[in-house]
Computed example of a mutant assay.
Amino acid sequence: MPRLPAKTAGLVMPLLLSIMMTCIVSLVSTLSSLGWPAFTFSGWLSAWGLSWVIAFPTLLLVLPMVKKLTSYLVHA
């Protein structure tokens, strides 16, 4: 399988993180609000899509600040 260049890691990591995180959080949130009987895959997919559209750009904007804050809080 071909691999992406190392310089793309700064975009690929937040992309994968946002996909996985919003998938899990939207599933839990959808099940919590609707319950198993009213749960539908299409409803969850819609909630996940909206969550991801917001989360990915937010993650790209916030990640540099989080890295800087982490470096202040954690001893190298």
Rank of each mutant, 00 (worst) to 15 (best):
P64R: 13
K7V: 11
P14A: 09
P37E: 09
A55M: 12
I54M: 14
W48I: 07
W44F: 14
S71R: 14
V62D: 06
M21I: 01
W36F: 02
L34M: 09
S46G: 14
V62Q: 02
S32A: 08
S18P: 09
I54A: 14
P37T: 10
F39Q: 04
S46R: 14
L17T: 15
V74K: 15
F56S: 03
M20L: 15
L59C: 09
V74R: 15
P14H: 02
A6M: 08
I54P: 04
V25A: 11
P14D: 01
K68R: 07
F56E: 06
L63M: 12
I19Q: 03
A76R: 13
M1F: 00
L73P: 02
S18L: 01
A38F: 02
I24C: 03
M21N: 03
P57R: 03
S33E: 11
A47K: 06
I24M: 10
L4P: 00
I19E: 04
A9I: 08
V53M: 12
M1Y: 05
A38H: 11
F39W: 13
L17C: 10
L50V: 14
V66Y: 02
A6Y: 05
L50D: 12
S71I: 07
P64D: 08
A38Y: 10
V53K: 06
T30H: 10
K68V: 05
A55D: 07
M21W: 13
V53G: 01
T58H: 08
G10P: 00
A47H: 15
T40W: 08
P5R: 07
L73M: 14
A6D: 04
R3I: 00
A55C: 15
G35I: 05
V25E: 06
Y72M: 11
R3N: 07
G43Y: 04
V62K: 01
S46P: 04
M20H: 09
T8C: 03
P14W: 10
H75G: 00
M20I: 11
M13F: 14
M1P: 06
G43F: 05
L15W: 11
C23R: 03
L69V: 01
C23F: 14
S29W: 00
W48M: 15
K7A: 11
F41R: 07
S42V: 08
L45S: 14
L11H: 09
L16S: 10
S51G: 15
V25G: 03
L31P: 15
L11S: 05
S71Y: 04
F39E: 12
H75Y: 07
K67C: 08
K68W: 08
T40Y: 11
S26R: 06
L34C: 06
A55L: 08
P37D: 10
A55Y: 13
S46Q: 14
L4A: 09
T8V: 04
G10I: 03
I19W: 06
G49H: 07
V12R: 15
M65Q: 02
L4G: 00
M65G: 05
P37R: 02
P37I: 13
T70I: 11
S32R: 04
L63H: 09
L59K: 06
G49N: 12
V28H: 00
M65S: 03
M21Q: 13
T40A: 06
T58A: 14
L73N: 07
G35P: 13
L15I: 03
I24E: 07
M20W: 12
L60E: 04
